[in-house]
């Protein structure tokens, strides 16, 4: 559904970086590793939160 607000493991706030990450790495063609480094998402627990996320709001909204 929506991107998690915080990292499940360490509690760092990662939600605020999702839109930029999505735009640059998923929609754009930048290297996700470089984008995450630039956003300051350093630990691998926080990085997987963004890398493995899929927005499903658009998928479920017709069935509401």
């Amino acid at each position: 559904m929506m991107v998690p607000v915080r990292c499940f493991t360490c509690g760092n706030v990662v939600g605020e970086h999702w839109e930029e990450f999505d735009e640059r790495s998923n929609e754009g063609d930048e290297d996700p590793e470089a984008v995450l480094d630039e956003l300051g998402v350093d630990r691998y627990c926080c990085r997987r939160m963004l890398v493995s996320h899929t927005d499903l709001v658009d998928v479920v909204s017709p069935y509401q």
Partner: peptide, 11 residues
């Protein structure tokens, strides 16, 4: 403290 955390996408 952070202003850009998405809460929910509204259609």
């Amino acid at each position: 403290a952070d202003e850009n955390v998405p809460i929910i996408d509204l259609k």
